[in-house]
Simulated scan of single mutants.
Amino acid sequence: MNTFKSAALLVAATALVAGSSVAATAAPAPDGTRVTSLQRTAEQVLGGDAKPVRVTADAVAYDGLTVTEAPRGSASTKALSCGYGHLCMVVNGTKFDFYKCQTWELTNWIGDGPFTNNQTPGTVARFYNKDGSVRWTSTAYESGTATWDPIWSLRPC
């Protein structure tokens, strides 16, 4: 009897876990593709030209950028890990990890959040106003808290 109950519990737990991961994976988009809520969030803040190359429930990967949910406690820069050669920041609860030298168009970057510029020492990341003028810069290695509004584009290198 205990073996039967244990097996039933295992089957129920497996179904619950599988069901929750399927629900979290994606919702159907109007064109029939599946779009995660994280991908929707990323698309709201990236200019319309960025197209994902890989989408999972936990991350959206672009050519030169990975977008994930910000880790809990990421309000402090100590909690914001960032790989060597990368520029990372948290904007509205979403972590952006840039690793390709190009200009990224942005929208809806508002509020304050931590950043870590962990690129090659001396590499300058530039953050731009709407008119294309430089709003502020960060020289690697540097970390801190930034005010994102209004940042309209950035160039990690």
Results as ranks from 00 to 15, higher is better:
residue 25 T to P: 06
residue 14 T to W: 13
residue 54 R to F: 01
residue 31 D to P: 14
residue 150 P to H: 06
residue 82 C to V: 10
residue 122 G to C: 02
residue 130 K to F: 10
residue 111 G to P: 09
residue 18 A to G: 14
residue 98 F to Y: 13
residue 92 N to Q: 15
residue 22 V to P: 00
residue 130 K to H: 12
residue 121 P to L: 01
residue 135 R to T: 02
residue 22 V to H: 10
residue 85 G to T: 07
residue 121 P to S: 07
residue 47 G to V: 10
residue 52 P to G: 03
residue 26 A to V: 13
residue 69 E to L: 15
residue 150 P to L: 00
residue 10 L to S: 12
residue 151 I to R: 03
residue 72 R to Y: 06
residue 110 I to F: 12
residue 12 A to N: 00
residue 101 C to V: 13
residue 17 V to R: 00
residue 118 N to W: 05
residue 28 P to A: 06
residue 51 K to F: 02
residue 24 A to N: 14
residue 48 G to Y: 04
residue 146 A to W: 12
residue 29 A to C: 02
residue 73 G to Q: 11
residue 132 G to F: 06
residue 64 G to I: 03
residue 14 T to A: 14
residue 38 L to V: 10
residue 119 Q to P: 03
residue 79 A to M: 05
residue 80 L to P: 12
residue 1 M to L: 07
residue 94 T to C: 00
residue 43 E to L: 15
residue 157 C to F: 05
residue 41 T to C: 05
residue 134 V to M: 04
residue 21 S to T: 15
residue 150 P to G: 05
residue 106 L to T: 15
residue 112 D to I: 09
residue 35 V to D: 04
residue 152 W to F: 12
residue 29 A to I: 09
residue 3 T to V: 09
residue 87 L to S: 06
residue 118 N to Q: 11
residue 124 V to E: 02
residue 138 S to L: 10
residue 39 Q to M: 07
residue 124 V to G: 01
residue 10 L to K: 09
residue 71 P to D: 08
residue 79 A to W: 02
residue 38 L to I: 11
residue 141 Y to H: 13
residue 123 T to E: 07
residue 148 W to C: 08
residue 112 D to L: 04
residue 20 S to P: 05
residue 6 S to H: 14
residue 134 V to C: 00
residue 145 T to W: 00
residue 40 R to K: 15
residue 138 S to C: 05
residue 87 L to M: 07
residue 89 M to R: 00
residue 3 T to A: 09
residue 100 K to W: 05
residue 113 G to V: 10
residue 27 A to G: 09
residue 39 Q to T: 09
residue 44 Q to V: 03
residue 89 M to D: 08
residue 68 T to R: 15
residue 90 V to D: 05
residue 47 G to N: 08
residue 142 E to N: 15
residue 113 G to A: 04
residue 119 Q to V: 06
residue 151 I to L: 07
residue 57 A to D: 11
residue 157 C to K: 11
residue 110 I to K: 13
residue 148 W to K: 11
residue 33 T to P: 01
residue 92 N to I: 04
residue 61 A to N: 01
residue 59 A to D: 03
residue 35 V to M: 06
residue 66 T to K: 07
residue 117 N to R: 11
residue 61 A to E: 02
residue 37 S to E: 08
residue 134 V to N: 07
residue 24 A to I: 13
residue 107 T to Q: 15
residue 35 V to S: 06
residue 140 A to E: 05
residue 137 T to P: 07
residue 1 M to P: 08
residue 45 V to D: 04
residue 58 D to Q: 11
residue 4 F to R: 14
residue 96 F to Q: 01
residue 43 E to F: 12
